[in-house]
């Protein structure tokens, strides 16, 4: 799709708001519909749109594929680590009440970290999946 100016410019205009929207969904999940799973998918769609219109090579330069799997693992680690932090602070596994000086803040912090981990894992895995299928043919 190298020679379709309308699609290319459309994608150029659309990609940044798409990623901003993903971040909004990620951090607004407490108040409305949304959360790590949806945000991760939307964030990955931003990269996929870029890759579809500007070619796999440029997308690979924007997101190095070697970085994606470590990021996905980091997401799971953040999630599991939040649980371990609860253990170390004297609560039980994945008990957020003890994370801060006050249970409500603890819950808030815990949910934030957990959703961050989920979003990181989902977005990196979805982007990886696309790169795997798209890169196979050549």
């Amino acid at each position: 799709m190298q020679n379709r100016p309308i699609a290319r410019i459309g994608a150029k205009i659309l990609t940044p708001p798409l990623m901003l929207f993903a971040l909004y969904v990620q951090f607004h999940g407490d108040l409305g519909p949304g959360g790590g799973f949806q945000a991760g998918v939307i964030f990955a769609v931003g990269f996929i749109l870029y890759a579809l219109l500007f070619g796999l090579e440029r997308a690979r330069r924007a997101v190095p594929p070697g970085l994606l799997l470590p990021l996905a693992a980091l997401g799971v680690l953040i999630y599991a680590g939040t649980g371990v932090a609860g253990l170390l602070l004297g609560g039980s596994y994945l008990d957020y009440n003890v994370l801060a000086h006050e249970p409500h803040h603890g819950q808030h912090l815990g949910i934030f970290l957990v959703e961050l981990g989920v979003g990181l894992t989902v977005s990196s895995i979805m982007t990886t999946l696309f790169f795997c299928f798209a890169g196979r043919g050549r």
Partner: peptide
Amino acid sequence: PPNIVTSVLASYRGFDTLGETTVIF
């Protein structure tokens, strides 16, 4: 959080979601 789904997903059923995230990974 006002969104009950988020509360249940991340807090009440945190173990569940940890498992699902691992499956995706």
